[in-house]
Amino acid sequence: MFDSLGTVISRVLRLGAVLVAAIGLVGSLVGYLLTGLPGVYAALIGSGAAFLFTALTALSVLIGSKLNLAGFLGAVLGGWLIKMVLFLIGFSFLNKSDWLTHDSRPIVFFTVVSAVIGGLVIDTLIVSKARLTATLDKP
């Protein structure tokens, strides 16, 4: 039996959510021990932002695959561009916020980087193990 694109993406999202929850938990613990409550917020924001960032790309591919080639590229690249601008604005507000103390800021960075790299490992493993058809998904 072959896997459809939807199956692959939902598998990636499910495993990605588990990984992000684990990184958020470990990061919160380390953050709490190092900097107190702001460290917990930092870890949760970092891992959540990384998951949202990668999950939106996967979702845009899933939505775009139901359209024609121009629609696919518009959904994936347009979604990517809007997402980048939104994250730039969000991170700039977060960087200026007072409740995220100076000591807890590196925790955001390290949770983002570990969630992104872990997410890439999951993506690669799932895609390499998926049994994709050599033909279009469309009927």
Partner: peptide, 15 residues
């Protein structure tokens, strides 16, 4: 005819 498989590979590349 390989569009579906190429789209998945493209997504991995973009990721």
């Amino acid at each position: 005819e390989l569009a579906a498989r190429l789209q998945v590979t493209m997504w991995l590349g973009i990721a």
